[in-house]
Structures are given as C-alpha cells and as structure tokens.
Design a protein around this nucleic acid. Structure first.
Length: 646
DNA sequence: GGGCTGTACTG
DNA sequence: CAGTACA
DNA sequence: GCCC
C-alpha cells in the first residue's frame, strides 16, 4: 500500500500489482479476515488509464488483501470477476472484445462500489449481513450472494443483469467464519417450504442439543495413564505462542517453535512467527495467514519461493525414488522425506551445511549428510545412481494410471514394460482391470487439475439433480475446492440429510448415480458403492465431464453419510490429507480415534497389531467440526488454513 | 525397536 | 487378502 | 528415514 501521496509516485497498474504481491509475499500486506475474495480471479479495470488513481490503488489492495487473484491481462478462461466502472463501451474496448455481452456468462461484472459494499457488509466479521436493500439476512449469513450481484447499483453493466439472473448462483468462496453456522455452499437455499424445519436449515451448525461437556477418553484410562501424557497433553496444547520472549536468541526460539509446529503440524500458521527480518533485530512479529495455494496458481511471480529450493528439489527426487519402490521400508522413507521437505519449506533461512539442516525437525543424520553432500559437491551420488536404473521413471509413468500403484507398476517394469503403449498392447501379458482401462484411456485428463470454476460449474449441475431427488438433501462440494484452491484435482461431493422429519436419504445414491449418468455428467464409473440401494453411507468414485463437446474427463467422488456424522465427514473430506493424518495422529496420542464418522474415546487397540481395534469405543463428537477441534485441543482452522502438504 | 491415519472398494 | 485409493 |  504505497500511500505516499506527497511524493505522488505515479503507478501503472502492472507496477502496482507487482508491488502489492511483493508486499504480500514479504508478509507486509495486512490480510484482514475474512478473505471473502478467496477463489475469485479478478480483472480490475482501473479508472485511470495510464496512471492509477488513488481509488484504483485502494481497490487493488482491497482485492489482494482479501484473497483475490488479480489478472494483469483479461483472461476469460480463468476470470471469475471483472470490476469496472468504465461503462460498457470503454470496458469492451479495453478488454479487446466487441461488447460486454461477449463476456462469458459465468464471469461476474461489478462496479467498484461492489468492493466497498462487500467490505462493509462482511468485513467486520458479523454473522448477520445487511443486504443492499437494507434488510438483514440471518439465514444465509457470511458470504456475498446473488443479491450482491443483482443489485443494479453494484452491477457494472445493466446489459448483463438479465443474463446474470439466468445462471445459477455461484457458491461463495469456500471460507467459513470461526463462529456460527457453517453452511457450505450456495447462499441461495434450494427451493423449500419454509413452514417447517426451522432447525434444519443451518445444516452444519453447532450441535444444538447435546450437552457439550468435554468427554474424556475414560474407558481407555490404562492407555492414557501409562503414557506420561494426560488426556490433554499440555505440551501439545496448541495455544498461540506468546511473543514476549523474543529478546535473546530469535534463532533458538525459531527452532523450538518450528519443532513444536512440526511435531503435529496442527497449528494454524498465522500464529507462527515471521523471522524474515530477525537479522535486523526487529524482534518477533506475527504475520497474518495468507492462503498459499490460492496465490501460487496464477501469481505471475512464483510465490515466495523457498530459500532452500535447490535442496528441496533434491529431496523431492529422493522422495520420488522411494515412493516408486513397492517395499514397505521405502514407503516409510518416502514418508520421512515428505515430512522433511515440508519442514525445510517452512525454514525461513538458507541452510548452509548439513549441521544446520540437522537442526530441523524431521531431518536426521542421513538426510543431513545428503544435504551436506549436495551443498559441497552440487549433487547427491545416491540420486544419480538410483535414477540411472530407470525404474523410477517407469513407475511414475505407470502409477499415473488410475488403479495402478507402486506394486503393479514395479511388476510391469520388471516384466519389461516401459511405456504406456507397452501397457496398452498388453506387453508381457499384463491384463488391466476395468478401472485401470479407464485410467489409461483418460490418462492425461485424470492427471490434470481443473480450474476451480469448472469444479464449481460441474457441482452446480449436480446439485439440482440431487435436490430433485430430495430437496432436503445437504449437498456440498469439499476437498481442495472447500480449501479455497484455485485449481482442483477432483470434485468431492458430500451428501447427507437432516433426520428431523424422520426420513432418510436411503437410496439416494442409486438414484443420483442414474440421474447423473442420464444427464451425461457421469461418464465412467471407477468404483461403485457396495450398497447404493439402501445404505445411508457409501462412496462413489468415477469420472465426469461437463456435458459439452471436447470437455475433459474429471475425477469425481461422491460420499454419502448419515446426518449425525456430518462434522467428522466435513473434517475428513475437507482435508488436506496431511492435515487429516496429523489430526488422527494427535487423536491417537490422546487415546481417541478419529475417522470420517467421528471422534471415538475408549478405543481399545490390539497391542500386537495397533491398527486393529478390539473395542470400537464410544463416539464423543461427530456433528460439528468445532467440537472435534475443541476436544483435540487444536485451534480452530478454516478450511483454507488446513493446508499441510503441497 | 516400534510407530508413522483410518477407511472403502476391487478381484 | 493384498493392492489401491481417498481426505 | 526419523523420532521416541
């Protein structure tokens, strides 16, 4: 926010955007919550043609600080919004199109007042938002909705309003407030009779009935007490770090905190400490969280690339090598390398030698010495050696086929197969399962990520089909979409249904499956639920595509669960995977067990085979994500903060 | 020297 | 049951 | 492969 008006520096749009992202990367841009522009990719057309005006700069900053990705050049394939006050003609000219009516329908066009409106309606974090017409919206609190776009005062071009009304409303950016109801998707509720079921609408609200005292995993007291950790180990209780002891040795403090952090990786990074300027004795400063994945995608500048990127690259190779081998030792080595990579990525200073590397949690003797070798000789002989064998490349190629894992891939390699063509021809007598056939056929598509907008578009076709089966269904899009990522590897849909009217969603999966195939949205099945017909709980995996020519196949998973498990299901299905493992790990350490149905206390495990449970335990939390976080002593984290991997 | 998440579907 | 996949 |  270069606000030095006195100096009156003249910025061009590109310069200013550069500057903003530089500041953001350096953690110097205030990032107020909530980031309700998260997931939006915006082309903002400045009022000032060559030199930005103050208002332009303010709007740029507003967009970036609330999570938007900015386009330097208008790109209709990825843009979600255009902000312009230049009038239809001028805008069209400057976008390089004939008419604003040529803007793809899904792109919202709004004027500059829109931004201020959103900030005033949603910026302070109130639950209840004020609609443009002055009324309060209690029901669909939190996120910009249809009315925000349809208000003629906020729309950029009245020409497009009609068009906008015709298209389904977009789900808001998938970010939640800390408190209050947690409605997942569209701010526009499905048509429903509002005479009944007052209690069901906030489908993911806090547990309304159950008593909330914290259950203890009492039945497993033997397990708990034998380890020195009590039910809630104080050491891992992830309260925000107190910042006062920043005096003596910031570096030492960094290590201890990094260690703590790395241990479970459950703490929100916003409470982590920014040491980037520790060398200037600036003391400790907390930074606000920036959702990294969103930035990484269309940020022209590679996001705050890591100081140790070269080392990471080598470790990635080691990880790849070990994950290519179908032996358990290798799997765990790969696991270790991954952890190592994560922690080094978060390491704020350049690693100069093996000893320094060794200080990082997760980096042991062996890795440290490899890093040392790399820093002194410029390469790691082990890597050169292993990669020369060629199995790694082949396995990586083959495991790109859905349904082919390291075992199969490695066997194929042993049989002499090297290319996908070899696989296709059935060289060495290899037979493909139906699922692998599909995986091979759509190899490229399946291994591509899709733009967030496409995931949304597909979801918005599926949702009404589901609601036509039963309007009371709760249908939400999860996974990386819910975490706010700008691109998604697949589409994850969670379906459940309130039980207050005594009815259930039994059989919905079968009908939905049929309906989606009929609508030509589902194209191939990969794994069908064992019991689509009547179970309340089942998983579908398959491929889908937009029912238009030349659209790519996309991976889709549909998960159905009983209503009472919705909190745990949200948690599970939102991920990311590393975050889930960390949560489950901590749950385990505390004597609980966590799965997609709930948090269980008093689980008794077979002492010989720990994964095997002698006693299933009692469910102590499952209806809301919050209660699970709370019981596990993990500070609440919004979906987009739950990123531990990539 | 044991643990490193916990589950569902395929064949 | 092993293998693969999902977050 | 790392950590306890």
């Amino acid at each position: 926010m270069p606000k030095d008006r006195k100096v009156a520096k003249k910025w061009t749009a590109d310069e200013y955007i550069d500057d903003l992202f530089q500041k953001k990367d350096a953690g110097k841009l205030p990032m107020p919550n909530p980031p309700f522009f998260l997931g939006m990719e915006v082309f903002y057309l400045p009022i000032g043609q060559d030199v930005l005006r103050d208002i332009d700069m303010k709007r740029y900053e507003r967009l970036v600080s609330r999570g938007a990705v900015l386009q330097r050049r208008y790109d209709p394939t990825t843009a979600t919004h255009i902000v312009s006050e230049n009038g239809a003609k001028v805008t069209a000219t400057r976008l390089g199109i004939n008419s604003v009516l040529d803007i793809p329908e899904h792109i919202r066009t709004v004027n500059g007042a829109f931004l201020g409106h959103l900030v005033s309606c949603y910026g302070s974090g109130t639950h209840v938002r004020t609609l443009p017409n002055g009324r309060k919206d209690y029901e669909n609190a939190h996120w910009p909705g249809r009315e925000d776009f349809d208000d003629p005062k906020l729309a950029a071009f009245t020409e497009r309003i009609k068009k906008i009304e015709e298209i389904p409303v977009a789900p808001p950016p998938q970010v939640r407030r800390r408190h209050g109801e947690r409605r997942l998707s569209s701010p526009q509720p499905p048509a429903r009779s509002d005479t009944e079921d007052e209690d069901e609408d906030p489908r993911f609200k806090r547990n309304p009935t159950k008593s909330r005292q914290l259950p203890t995993p009492s039945q497993s007291s033997d397990i708990i007490s034998r380890s020195s950790s009590p039910g809630l180990p104080p050491t891992s209780s992830p309260t925000p770090y107190d910042d006062e002891k920043a005096d003596s040795d910031p570096l030492a403090e960094f290590y201890s905190k990094a260690r703590e952090e790395a241990e479970l990786g459950l703490n929100d990074e916003s409470e982590f400490v920014d040491y980037t300027n520790h060398g200037h004795k600036r003391g400790v400063r907390t930074i606000t969280h920036t959702p990294p994945s969103v930035w990484s995608v269309d940020n022209p500048r590679p996001t705050a690339s890591c100081l140790n990127q070269d080392i990471i690259d080598e470790l990635e190779r080691l990880h790849l090598i070990h994950s290519s081998r179908p032996f358990e030792e290798d799997a765990w080595r790969a696991f270790s390398y991954k952890k190592c990579i994560r922690n080094i990525k978060n390491h704020p200073i350049r690693i100069k030698n093996g000893n320094e590397a060794r200080q990082i949690y997760g980096v042991g003797e062996k890795t440290a010495s490899k890093i040392n070798e790399f820093l002194t000789t410029g390469k790691i002989s082990r890597i050169t050696h292993e990669l020369s064998k060629g199995d790694v490349a082949a396995v990586k190629l083959f495991t790109g086929i859905y349904g082919v894992g390291s075992h199969t891939a490695y066997n194929w390699y042993t049989l002499g197969l090297r290319t996908l063509e070899d696989v296709r021809r059935g060289k060495g007598g290899v037979k493909l399962s139906p699922c692998q056939e599909t995986g091979l056929k759509f190899y490229d598509d399946i291994n591509l990520r899709m733009p967030r907008a496409e995931a949304e578009e597909i979801f918005l076709m599926i949702k009404p089909i589901a609601l036509a089966i039963d309007p009371k269904l709760s249908v939400d899009i999860m996974g990386s979409f819910r975490r706010g990522k700008a691109d998604c590897g697949d589409i994850d849909i969670l379906i459940t249904r309130p039980i207050h009217d005594g009815k259930t969603h039994a059989g919905v999966m079968a009908r939905l499956w049929a309906g989606l195939h009929k609508a030509r949205i589902l194209t191939e099945d990969l794994a069908l639920p064992s019991n689509m017909e009547d179970s309340l709980e089942c998983t579908y995996r398959g491929l889908c595509s937009l029912p238009v020519p030349d659209s790519r196949r996309r991976r889709i998973d549909i998960l159905m669960l009983p209503w009472q498990y919705r909190g745990a299901a949200l948690l599970y299905y939102t991920g990311d995977d590393i975050f889930n493992r960390a949560m489950r790990f901590k749950a385990g350490k505390m004597g609980y067990s966590l799965n997609q149905r709930g948090l269980y206390a008093g689980v008794v495990r077979n002492p010989n085979k720990r994964t095997e449970k002698t006693n299933q335990g009692n469910i102590v939390a499952s209806e809301t994500e919050e209660e699970i976080f709370k019981i596990l002593g993990v500070p609440w984290q919004e979906p987009w903060q739950r990123v531990r991997g990539a």
